Amino acid sequence: MPVVATAMPCRFQLYRHHDATGVSGTGVVAWGTVYPNGKVSLAWNGSRPSINIYESLADVTAIHGHDGFTQIIMCDELPLSVRAGAGASSSFDW
């Protein structure tokens, strides 16, 4: 069966410009995946790496945006259905 490109997960980096909490550091602090159903996974870097699952990019924004100190840098283009729900572009500044 062929793989349909639009059904594939999209990758992104969670880039932190300033670490307001002193926990995750700065730079690329996590790698993420947005799935075709809108769910998101984050694989965290650092001394205590973990993987977390979120319902949407909006949830990631609300939890990890830190008042504009964090940016999502997309590696792949989001499907239209996910973009509409996230107000997304190729990068997000919160």
Rank of each mutant, 00 (worst) to 15 (best):
V3W: 00
A20S: 15
G87K: 02
N37E: 10
S41T: 14
A88V: 09
V34P: 02
A86W: 07
V40N: 00
M74Y: 06
A58E: 07
P49G: 11
I53Q: 00
Q71L: 07
H17M: 09
H17C: 14
M1C: 03
V82N: 00
Y35C: 06
C75N: 13
V29I: 15
H64P: 04
G85L: 02
H66K: 06
D19C: 08
V29R: 01
I73R: 01
I51K: 14
P36G: 03
S41M: 04
H18L: 12
Y54W: 06
G27T: 07
L14K: 12
G68C: 12
V29Y: 01
W94R: 03
S56F: 08
H18S: 07
I53M: 02
G32Y: 05
W31M: 00
L78W: 08
V4C: 13
A88E: 13
N37G: 04
S47G: 00
T6Q: 14
S41N: 04
I73M: 10
I72E: 08
F12L: 14
K39L: 09
R48H: 13
I72R: 03
S56M: 07
C75E: 15
W31Q: 00
W44G: 08
N37Y: 13
T26G: 01
S91A: 06
A30F: 05
S91R: 13
I53R: 02
G38P: 02
G46Q: 03
V4E: 09
I73F: 06
M1D: 03
I53K: 02
M74F: 06
H17S: 09
G87E: 00
S89K: 08
L42G: 05
V82H: 01
P79A: 05
R11Y: 12
P49N: 12
H66V: 08
T61H: 15
I72D: 04
T6E: 12
N45A: 05
Q13H: 14
R48W: 04
D67T: 09
L14A: 14
R11K: 15
V23F: 02
S50R: 11
G65Y: 00
A84D: 07
R11D: 10
I53Y: 04
W44M: 02
R11E: 09
Y54A: 01
D19P: 09
V28N: 05
S81Q: 12
E77C: 05
A86Q: 11
K39S: 11
W31N: 01
H18C: 03
P2S: 09
D59F: 05
H64W: 13
D93C: 10
G27D: 07
N45P: 06
